[in-house]
Amino acid sequence: MIERTPLLNIATHLILILGLVIILVPIWLAFVAATHTLQAVNSAPVEFWPGDQLWPNLKEAWVQSDFGPKFVNTLIVSTGVVVGKITLACITAFALVFFTFRGRMLIFWAIFITLMLPLEVRIVPTYAVAANALSPFQTIMDATGISWLIATLSGVEVALEWNLLNSYTGLILPLVATATGTFLYRQFFLTIPDELVEAARMDGAGPLRFLWDVLIPLSKTNIAALATIMFVYAWNQYLWPLLVITDRATYGMVVVQLSDLVPDQLTTGGGTPTWHLAMAATLVVMLPPIVIVIFMQRWFVRGLINTDK
């Protein structure tokens, strides 16, 4: 700092510590609840210090919610979404930046507009599409008379169906379209000097070789930044998996499992609410993305700021 300000420094520390306490308190209370027995959690004077029941509670919550396969599922879906988003963002932005063709800006805007309407807003019709991902084409063919034509010519009734409910594809596919990622990649590709492209062409590299051998190695920081934010985004998906997956035993994801843990009349049947297990499960579910954000902090912050601005 420029000048010595001992009093202000103390005030600064006090304010920041107060902020940290406010942020930590709810999770601390949840953590404490997860370390006590059922009786201790539900008795009147609240515990503020952890007890010794953390491990047994975690184990019981793990078994009760059948977290093993659900963690595997969540990991599969998150990886799928991350890989899918980065691949799509990269190749789309590449085609938009390094090729000349008419309608380039139109396509860019068509992708960019999708930012405006997040999944939550158009949830009902998107769900209907997931029940049959080919229904748009079916409707178009019916409306234009193509299916009638095919039916009269070949006698085959056109009935396209591709049900995405209760499948990894259904969980991943609607989430991989990415306006922010495409935008980030486009910004990066625009900074690539023309000389580099010319040099690559002089050496006889086609577009795909240029993409693979020059651009992708250059965009490693981009990939790290995008991967971090997209992983957190995918892991924390709630509404979409809640709807698409009815077969929770096979395809359930951990975050959705939380909706079953709310200790109300439904789950406890009027008994004592099992807060200690609910909180233990909450901790288990929230931990992986937190770890990622803390350890990948640099990339995470960069990704967040570059995609939204």
Partner: peptide, 23 residues
Amino acid sequence: YRVGIIWPYAVAAPAVGLAFQFV
């Protein structure tokens, strides 16, 4: 301080809801 303030971003909304329901 910075890490201490950033990490809640990673917590899933339903987990926040459930933790606060307990609080």
